[in-house]
Design a binder for these strands. Structure first.
Lengths: 235, 235, 235, 235
DNA sequence: GATGAATGAGAATTCATTCAT
DNA sequence: GATGAATGAATTCTCATTCAT
């Protein structure tokens, strides 16, 4: 009847290798086509497996997406810590975080879109490992601010989480057009602007209490005069 | 699917009425099911027309979505101006803008999701009337800040557009979880926090220790009197 | 790019006609291949529509099956009543019912299998129109038995529904092998056997009444006495 | 799907033990999910082997099903004979057979469904060991009836196989709803009803018909004698 | 102006089965 | 003897969109 379909050449890989192959292929295809427009068949083809094989390792298409983003995040986080370790000072460290986020968006707009549009909006997001990784990711920013407070550089009443939302919200809002494929932006310049703006509201008003030092001086001087008059000297 | 050809009662409506009916139905269905999961058949059914008729008034599904959001925005903007007209003071006006945005998200999370996920991310967004409306919408915020600067309340070097991104970015970032269906938030309290944080970085810092200057003056005057009494002049 | 796929020749039919076409095609294909082995694509092809069109009229494959059987049943029931009207006598009418059931199995083994294996066993069967039709179908048998009782031909304590189960159960059990594709059976002869067996347990045992033996004895004794009296002995 | 290659602990079992493990797992899974909805992977998992291993002991999924039912039947038959040995009297023994069948259905509806829907309907059924076992199973019923005839309790002209079909057909028909998951039934009461109905058609009408002809003859003869005595002749 | 029948093209998914190791 | 990676082939179902009537 019909000749027994000749089995394609089978390459046997370990689970880890195969998973890596598929995720790598998926990352590429998702990057090129987005989520909805990326057929599993494309991913399978690029990973050199049949579609069905993907389901051995991933529950479904969404699971594959989640894992791809997860994998990407993990790589990034390791990098973060490495670089952050060499940076000192609240402003510098904060600027690095913002710049890094902007750079990521700049370099991987497609994956970021995946994250922003498909993962973060899903009802199951908070049960996701990506969610956890993201907390990890933004926690560094919180830590930097906390350290700034402890070092006396920042006001003590800074609403931590709101500042974090402000930083990331501002960063992303700034890049919507770019993510949409319109125009470009300069991560360096943008990072400078954002860090300036953010810190302008958080830094201790040392130079800025111009009235206060004057007052203190004047009071001290007045007191000194009184002291002179009364003949009592400071010890 | 099953019923014996329900000879549809044809209601003749004016073009405007028909369009309104369809948009109203679409808004409901989109609100309930989102974009992808809202079949045109559902919308047609609810609007009491057949699917084909929708194409008489709208180019395609996306066009319908765009029009629905557009319509919604228009209603909102009129409202904005009305209310904003009665509010005085940079802080108050800014707080209103933020509070209003938060309230909208709070009341219409589904439509906001549509806007954030489906419209704003589309490559064609910037050619959209919604885009224009949105500029309109955020322009009011810019105007308020400008007025604040002109009134001398805000620093002169405020990076206007970045502040706008900060306001809206922060606002939206704050509400992601809610938009995802998790938990709740209080628009009033959140608006207060955000406006505080934003203004803390923008306000002119002279008049900012309002108590202090008075005190300084009174003290100085008191000291002067003392000096007068003792007949000793400052050096 | 790719030339706009030339639309196939579209034949427009009324809903009723199209439904009839599809059901007819489905009946054939189901008959030939059974349920599981009948791809919708085959049915679509034979009905000269595309697969998707089937879903305009039927919720899913199972719904199509249900409707096909339903349609078939409806035709049968009309026939039943017509023929039954011309038959008199409990035995004859009962025999007709049994014979008709056997004939149906004999003529449409495949559709019967569909009914027995796929419909009757489904958890949703009792909410089905087929279920209702089937009740209708077997109700005639109950009626015949009831009439037999009222006419004094059958015992009054006949457990109606159990008898129905016995008739249909026996009939079907007899035909399992045939339904499986093994051998053949003669509906006429089988009907005769079954009706005999069934009625043998249901018919009034006119002479059999337990009162009779007593009566017989008493009569015999009376006769014996008469004989004694007359002095004549039995031969 | 997800776990990091769980280096499976390999338990070496004898062929018999392994087969038993798999069959036991399969019986459970089939019971819970039916045939079509039971993936081999589930069975393998529960049997603590990999899917491929099942093919070492069973030709394919259907073979596994057949073996599972076979195994189940074997257990039942042994039981039957044991219990039947202690029961005397045609009615009692027949009732036991019916009751036992009903009880089996009552206790193992899922396995019975497997048997009724999947095995008995397959074209290969009659070449199956289950078929043979089933003949064995129903042969006991035939034997009981035969013994009843030989003992003079039952009519001599009982159509043996038809009676068997009637018994099992009735029994099963009665329980379709239960097998479908609707409602319940009482095996004891049902067995009583069925055995009554069946025997009502099979039992010798000793007291009844055989007496009757005798009586009639004797009466006629007595009447004839009386007539002789009285000198009046029949016309 | 409206209807609603029909299209079409895919897209995800499932699993029994095989076979290299 | 067992593993478990990989296959493959089909199959159901969904819907936006078109267009003859």
């Amino acid at each position: 009847m019909n000749s027994p379909t000749p089995r394609r050449q089978v390459f046997r890989l370990s689970r880890e290798q195969r998973v890596a192959e598929i995720m790598s292929a998926a990352r590429e295809v998702f990057r090129e086509k987005g989520y909805e427009d990326a057929p599993l068949s494309d991913i399978a083809e690029r990973a050199k497996v049949v579609e069905g094989s993907i389901y051995r390792y991933f529950e479904n298409k969404r699971d594959l997406l989640v894992k791809v983003i997860e994998d990407w995040y993990e790589g990034m986080l390791a990098d973060y810590d490495l670089q952050l370790a060499g940076i000192r000072g609240t402003r510098n460290r904060l600027r690095f975080m913002i710049w890094r986020h902007l750079s990521t968006i700049h370099e991987e707009p497609a994956l970021c879109n995946l994250m922003f549009q498909h993962l973060r909006t899903g009802g199951d997001y908070s049960h996701t490992a990506v969610h956890e990784l993201n907390r990890e990711y933004t926690r560094r920013t919180l830590d930097i601010i906390k350290e700034g407070i402890e070092a006396g550089e920042l006001r003590e009443d800074v609403p931590l989480r709101l500042v974090r939302d402000m930083i990331y919200g501002c960063t992303e809002h700034r890049t919507w057009a770019y993510l949409r494929g319109e125009g470009d932006f300069d991560p360096d310049a943008t990072a400078d602007m954002i860090v300036d703006l953010v810190l302008s509201g958080l830094e201790r008003r040392k130079p800025q209490q111009p009235a206060t030092p004057d007052l203190a001086e004047r009071l001290e001087r007045a007191v000194a005069r009184l002291e002179t008059m009364t003949g009592s000297a400071a010890p």
